[in-house]
Write a protein that binds this DNA or RNA. Structure first.
Lengths: 350, 350
DNA sequence: GGCAGTATTGCATTCGTATGCAATTCGGAG
DNA sequence: CTCCGAATTGCATACGAATGCAATACTGCC
């Protein structure tokens, strides 16, 4: 009894049902296993076989079904990439680069975009159902979610964040170090009163940057510090600056914004609404090194994240762990690249 | 003879092998079909059954395998989204929004990122192998590729582009109309000599914008036009402006850039390298309405794409065609939203 | 030509879920 | 209590490819 008596009128290559390896096998007069082997890397197949099969495959427009392959091999060759919405101008580059890196390795990217960084409920469920081989996330997971993922044996790499109290792999830019540099430069240039514009409360990146800045300021004996908070966006950057001024009664010597976009907002607000010159009357610095930071109207003093190296490392780290699940967690921290723009009065050189 | 004698020590829920519907069935003392039915929407299952199965499923940490489901139902519940690298500041928003829209409908996004818009070779292969249910693309496909996709019965929706001479569905912003508005405003304000900064040659969007602008200029009897081309990036925006000036010997009355980012580059170059006032000495306009266009240092006059509505429409259009593959192609064109900024001298009102 | 050893090939089974069909149970009406 | 139709459940098979094992075809060497 034939198990697969499906092919209707073969020879014609554009038909509703997609050709399967059985169809190809039948047309080529070989077994299905042979077809399967021809379409694999390390499989043994003679040159003659290869040619016969390929000819038949072309004729039928056959291509292996990755879904079926994933089922039998227990490998989907897909990784989940999780991003959150707020991380506006910065992540696009990251995402495109990541996707290309994975692509080169024959791995597809299943994208999940969160409205807020804390919306991870259903995402975890989806990732597990699709049996992704690994997870690269720019959002936090709860300990419970992490345990679930870990039980499923799926490696996870955190991007610019980590899991509190958990042993996990991560790639990050050293935010504290970057803030330290910024603060040092500003203080060395004689600034004594500071405004700190932080980002959203559920963003670790924002928290690290704020903490880094405040700690360094404190350790340098600076006490005149005013803090306000925004959402990483341009508009709130502007609002934050005005809030800062009204809270203090006057502008501080310098403003440390949690990211470049808010720093730009601060600059615009300072210039437009408060008639201040930047950096003549006030110094303003950011963080990230996004595109607009270079625009000459701002020429932001900032710390640039080494995106290229970070994405490359993140992809490698995840792929490694997919190949070898026993690898213990690893944290790689990259130093940011100091960028002296003209948005802050700094010491001439060091 | 038992077909699936796999479960080792059940009762314990954290074990290497993922629980399957058989495991759940065994533990709950029901058939595998029952488990399958409980985890579906329109399936018939009694309340008692539902509860037993769910209890067992929780205990084992079971979740349906989307890969296996995809194999049997011939539906991967995944769509491919294709973007290209160059489309820098603009697409990130699009991408996040799209992903969220699809998510709401229970559809996952498989992301493909192209280095250049013409790198579509392997992408098509990948998409077909993964049996995506639909394709949303912000890159062009060749006629051959389109035919292949069509033969596979996969619906395609083009985003801001179309396939030459092919009947396909698309969502676009009416670039010509937008350029017409920009040109009209500029000419009405008395500008007579123009610089046109176009984008990369393999980008349809760029071509449409250039053509739109040139046609309108011509129809208004303007002949003093100089054209240069960049790559949609800030740096080339700056270079283009200087090239424009040196080509003409003097700055034109107005510059029409193919996108906001290049317009910003032009403004910076005009101000910094040529000591020109914008819009005092020269008017510069862009296209897209990206974030930085709003920054008050630029306050770009531009045409904003209605991203929200476009992504919503694109997602719906694709999902519709997945449900009903017989639907004939449809093209939806959205008008851009004119934004009068301060980067151009325009008529006071109309 | 004969033989050992290796490279190819085919057979049969497997991955985890969905579903048509038949068997069974359930509910209510008479 | 009995009987009928509807709802629920189980059985068996299918989806499309990969792979261990056994059978077969080659290869080179004596």
């Amino acid at each position: 009894m034939k198990k697969h008596p499906k092919t209707g009128d073969n020879g014609n290559n554009s038909d509703k049902r997609r050709a399967t390896s059985y169809d190809v096998a039948t047309l080529a007069g070989v077994s299905q296993s042979a077809v399967s082997r021809v379409f694999q890397d390390g499989a043994s197949a003679s040159k003659a076989m290869r040619e016969r099969v390929m000819a038949a495959a072309d004729q039928l427009g056959y291509r292996p079904n990755a879904i079926a392959r994933g089922l039998i091999t227990q490998r989907s060759n897909m990784v989940a990439v999780v991003i959150s919405k707020l991380t506006n101008l910065y992540y696009p580059e990251v995402l495109v680069q990541l996707t290309q890196r994975f692509s080169e390795k024959g791995v597809r990217v299943l994208l999940f975009a969160l409205e807020r960084e804390s919306d991870t409920e259903s995402v975890v469920e989806q990732m597990l159902q699709y049996r992704v081989d690994g997870i690269l996330t720019a959002a936090m997971f709860t300990p419970g979610q992490l345990e679930t993922i870990d039980n499923a044996g799926i490696p996870v790499v955190f991007y610019n964040r980590s899991a509190p109290g958990q042993q996990v792999s991560s790639i990050r830019c050293d935010q504290e170090e970057g803030e330290r540099w910024l603060v040092d430069e500003l203080v060395n240039a004689g600034h004594r009163s500071f405004g700190v514009v932080e980002g959203p409360g559920d963003s670790i990146v924002s928290i690290e940057r704020r903490t880094g800045a405040l700690n360094e300021l404190k350790s340098l004996g600076i006490t005149d510090i005013t803090t306000v908070s925004g959402d990483f966006g341009y508009e709130t950057g502007r609002e934050c600056f005005s809030e800062l001024v009204s809270k203090r009664g006057s502008p501080p010597d310098a403003v440390i914004a949690a990211n470049d976009v808010m720093a730009i907002g601060c600059i615009d607000e300072a210039r437009e609404s408060h008639k201040l010159s930047v950096p003549g009357d006030i110094s303003i610095v950011g963080f990230d090194g996004v595109g607009p930071a270079r625009y000459s109207a701002y020429a932001l003093t900032t710390v640039r994240q080494p995106v290229q190296r970070m994405t490359l490392a993140a992809a490698s780290m995840l792929l490694e762990r997919i190949e070898n699940p026993e690898l213990s967690p690893e944290k790689r921290s990259f130093s940011g690249i100091p960028v002296r723009g003209s948005s802050a009065k700094l010491n001439p050189a060091e």
